[in-house]
Design a protein around this nucleic acid. Structure first.
Length: 580
RNA sequence: CGGGGCGUAGCGUAGUGGCUAGCGCGCCUGCUUUGGGAGCAGGAGAUCGGGAGUUCGAAUCUCCCCGCCCCGACCA
């Protein structure tokens, strides 16, 4: 039994000044977590219980698909990450440290390397596969900007698992098992979630899906179709583009004097004055970014998008991964790039890479820069006047854009990434030479999948989805206790509260008992609401009539029941099916 | 990395050169109170982020440093 008289818990009457998002504010106020450093939090007893409960759900479902739990160190020597290339690829995101002898170590951001090495070290036959391993462990990432409390921390608890298969078919099977397990996990956690297509990103590999918890404070934006079941991270979305046009059917390119038109807005106005009625969506905006490749090489990249849209840098970066996108400023070193008047016509001749968004379809005609100060060109046609080296989705996606699958309008939402599953392929198997001997006596290169759930983040995400103006409102499956027993007033209220609490505990429930001496009813009620335990039993003035009150935190519903029926009544609420 | 804001007790804050740094919450002692963040009385708790400087006198002015929070990472 959790007794509030002795529980390490102090609720705050006021919001902490440094917390903005609801989950952060409430988890601190309700005494679940405390900040130790930016993005680094301590978990107090109630928060710790939640970590345990969420982890338990995750473990049960992972075990159920046959995954085996292991535990790797968080403190890892440099060598494995050197071998995979991530010692450099991860850049500043990696926490690095040295031991007393000057040897390099890191705090693990994810553990592909060590899992791969473990399988390589223990297994050597195709008969050993497939195998799935997982751990629940603390991860470290030196985020540029930790934010929102435990939603994006630099230290966080993650379940990561990895599958090892002989072939693509096996990988698909392992992936499907994980996907189904994740569905069960997030259902059991009582979360609202969406499965969206994702870009596999820096990890390499092919199929990839994210589990997003829709919430206004989420950092990811995703689109979902209003008529079919297509949903995707905005970075990965495929829009329906217009059909290609025959370039020869377009009028000839024409260069115009357009003084003082460094922006799309000014350009459209000046073109209109000159009799060219071209909307912003008919202009071609050419944005220069700096691309940094994994080998350290840096080059400018010009990206063409319709002028009425911004370049979505996250989407661009996701689609040029593993290269990194940086702001470009060195116009003085590239005279071919005339700031404000860039057009794609001469970029190839100047050996500058030019890519376009799929919205810039083959044969389409555009008004764009003429690569001279104060001049633009109209009827500049893809496939005749310029040709991109590649088509890269990079334009901002807007609500109402056509679904790539069915053409219906898309809607946009924000979500918190709580899970990510993807088919890694052989990147790490190649890096470490992970082979097993096949049935024909020849080595077979193993193929891998990688699957993660943010355990601590899930707690914050649940808070974001369920809180109300009074405080936290936990789903039963993760709440730090099943029932909160509050005894207020004098006389025999307290002994009765003790008795009911003991009976509830004997029935197998986790009970939080407010047995603090001398707290006023108001304080006890406010705290109960702030803490968010799903059911509260109030033993108070109605005891004179032989009744106690059973409250539902989520609905606010309160019922008076006879003292003798209180335990049965609570049990019926906590375990609706009557099972244990 | 850029921009903005902020550092005063465990938490929230007041205090623009002048006496012993004030208030609320929380905490301790006593009495009263007990269905919606109780009352009275007494108390503990602060190197005012750090350093240097100006001054008879600095939380307050100057300089440097450190830390934190938020926003932005592009608009050609």
């Amino acid at each position: 039994m959790l007794r509030m008289s002795t529980l390490l818990l102090r609720t705050l009457r006021e919001d902490p000044a440094d917390a903005e998002v609801p989950s952060h504010r409430l988890l601190v106020r309700a005494g679940y977590v405390r900040r130790v450093a930016p993005g680094v939090y301590s978990w107090l007893p109630l928060g710790m219980r939640m970590l345990h409960r969420v982890s338990a759900v995750v473990r049960e479902e992972m075990d159920a698909i046959g995954a085996q739990e292991v535990l790797f160190p968080a403190l890892i020597p440099r060598e494995p990450y050197e071998a995979s290339g991530r010692w450099t690829e991860y850049g500043d995101l990696l926490f690095r440290l040295k031991d007393r002898r000057g040897n390099d170590y890191l705090l693990g951001p994810t553990h592909e390397e060590l899992f791969t090495l473990m399988v390589k070290g223990e297994y050597s036959s195709y008969k050993d596969l497939p195998v799935m391993l997982y751990q629940v462990q603390t991860k470290y990432r030196d985020e540029a900007r930790p934010r929102a409390g435990i939603l994006r921390g630099r230290e966080f608890v993650m379940k990561d698992s990895y599958s090892f298969d002989l072939d693509d078919e096996g990988l698909q099977h392992s992936y499907d098992l994980h996907r189904a397990a994740y569905v069960r996990i997030f259902e059991r956690l009582g979360m609202d979630y969406r499965i969206v297509s994702a870009v596999s990103g820096a990890m390499g590999g092919s199929a990839s899906e994210e589990f997003l918890a829709p919430a206004p404070t989420g950092e990811d934006s995703f689109v979902s179709c209003t008529s079919c079941d297509y949903a995707a991270n905005t970075e990965a979305v495929q829009l329906r583009a217009a059909d290609p046009v025959d370039p020869q059917s377009q009028p000839a390119m024409q260069v115009l004097d357009t003084p003082d038109t460094p922006t799309i807005e000014t350009l459209v106005a000046v073109l209109a004055e000159q009799g060219h009625d071209i909307p912003a969506s008919g202009t071609l905006k050419n944005v220069v970014v700096l691309l940094r490749h994994p080998d350290g090489k840096v080059e400018p990249l010009v990206v063409g998008v319709p002028g009425d849209r911004a370049v979505d840098l996250k989407r661009l970066e996701a689609n040029v991964s593993p290269a990194e996108v940086l702001p470009f400023e060195a116009f003085d070193r590239y005279p071919a790039l005339v700031k404000g008047y860039i057009g794609p016509q001469e970029l190839a001749a100047n050996k500058i890479r030019y890519v376009v968004d799929p919205l810039v379809v083959p044969g389409s005609a555009w008004a764009t820069g003429a690569n001279e100060q104060g001049r633009h060109a109209v009827s500049v046609v893809r496939g005749r006047d310029f040709e991109p080296v590649e088509v890269v989705p990079a334009a901002e996606v807007r609500a109402g854009d056509p679904c790539g699958r069915c053409g219906s309008p898309l809607e946009i939402g924000r979500g918190i990434e709580i899970g990510h599953i993807f088919q890694l392929g052989r990147k790490y198997a190649d890096a470490f030479g992970l082979d097993v001997l096949g049935p024909l006596g020849k080595p077979v290169r193993v193929t891998m999948g990688s699957y993660g759930i943010g355990v601590s983040r899930a707690i914050a995400a649940i808070a974001e989805q369920t809180y109300d103006e009074k405080g936290l409102v936990w789903p039963r499956s993760v709440a730090p206790a099943d029932v909160h027993v509050v005894g207020v007033g004098k006389g025999d209220h307290r002994p009765t509260a003790e008795r009911i609490a003991a009976e509830l505990e004997a029935a197998g429930l986790t009970v939080l008992l407010d047995d603090r001496p001398k707290v006023s009813p108001g304080v006890a009620f406010k705290d109960a609401e702030l803490l968010g335990i799903p059911t509260t039993v109030v033993i108070g003035k109605s005891l004179e009539d032989g009744q106690v009150e059973v409250r539902d935190r989520r609905t606010g519903d309160a019922r008076l029941v006879a003292v003798d029926e209180a335990v049965a009544c609570v049990l019926a609420d906590v375990r609706p099916g009557g099972s244990s």
